[in-house]
Simulated scan of single mutants.
Amino acid sequence: MKKASVKTPRIDGKETQERIKQAAQRLFALRGVDGVTVQEIVSAAGQRNNAALHYHFGSKRDLLKELVLDGAKLIDARRQAMLDEMEQSGAISVRALIEALAYPLLELGKQTGEYTYIRMIASLQLTDRELLREAVGDKWNLGYRRCLNQLASLLSHLPDPVLQQRLSLLGIYGSAIWAAWETAADAKTTNRFWEPAHSLSNVIDTLQAVVEVGPSSTTLELLTSTSHTERKKNRAAAASQ
């Protein structure tokens, strides 16, 4: 009697796309965007050749843009909802705004089942910020910009050059610390730093301190000196015209 052949379940185009995206994002998170080839992505996704990636996404860069956008949409929706709630309740504070910057990132892993997005973005911030701007545009970082605008308003007593640097530092520090948090979450093992109940709140305390702490007398003196020098240069340039 002839045995019935067992057919391998057919994988449709949508499932292939998702496998490629999941494999690529994990590789980008673990090894950095520039450390991963198209061949490595398709192999990790269980595909036979590079044509699968090119067929579904066009190029590695196009795939990256789609991955960035997938996460950015979810993060922005959550962040804007938090901001709307703050504004409606009148409970806007520096602490609440930093939480609105942080929590949507930290919640993304639970939404998607993958703890890889933050590290992929951190890699792009170091190597290809232009790709981030192209992918997100003005539409999908609206919540981020709303947070920064609100922070700037609450911290308007700080000298503007200091304030602008502080907001940049908030992003730089946040990117590094949340990438470390994601690494621990992805490992799914006990982590002595993140396991204590107070850890996440304590980290947010430190980020709050970054923007709120008053500038030192040294910083203010250097700022005044720089401003005075720039004014002299401007007057000299105007006089020579």
Rank of each mutant, 00 (worst) to 15 (best):
Y103E: 15
F57S: 03
L155R: 05
Y144E: 06
T8V: 14
G32D: 06
G113D: 09
S175L: 09
Q80L: 13
A209Y: 13
A135S: 12
A52E: 06
S153L: 05
S59M: 07
Y55S: 00
R133Y: 10
Q88M: 09
L131I: 11
A102P: 01
M1R: 13
D84Y: 07
V68M: 06
S216A: 04
I92V: 15
L124T: 02
I11Y: 02
L131C: 05
A45M: 05
D12L: 04
S123R: 00
E66R: 11
H56I: 09
L207T: 09
A100V: 08
E18W: 10
I204C: 07
Q241S: 13
A185K: 12
T224F: 00
S43A: 15
K3E: 13
T219W: 00
A185C: 11
S225I: 00
E107G: 03
A24I: 02
N202C: 09
P196E: 05
Y144L: 12
L106W: 00
G137D: 04
R48P: 02
S199W: 04
V136Y: 01
Q165N: 11
L142S: 08
A197G: 04
H228D: 15
G35H: 09
A52T: 10
K232N: 06
K21E: 07
R192L: 13
T37N: 02
G32Q: 04
G174E: 02
S216H: 02
T183L: 12
K232T: 08
S43T: 13
L74K: 08
K7E: 08
R129V: 12
Q22I: 12
L64M: 14
I20E: 02
A185E: 14
K110T: 04
R166F: 11
Y144H: 14
Y144P: 00
R129P: 05
A77M: 11
R145I: 02
L163G: 04
V94D: 01
L148E: 10
A102L: 03
A77L: 14
L83A: 03
T206V: 07
Q150M: 13
S5L: 11
E212H: 01
V162N: 09
G143M: 05
L108N: 03
P215Y: 08
S89N: 09
L69N: 05
L200N: 05
A44N: 08
S153T: 12
K73P: 00
K139I: 03
N149P: 03
L64N: 01
E114P: 01
L220Q: 11
Y55G: 00
E182G: 06
L163M: 12
D70L: 01
T112D: 07
G35F: 06
K233I: 15
L74H: 04
S227E: 15
K233F: 13
L167Y: 08
N202A: 15
N49H: 11
T183R: 10
L108P: 00
E15M: 12
V38D: 05
W178I: 07
Y173F: 14
A72W: 01
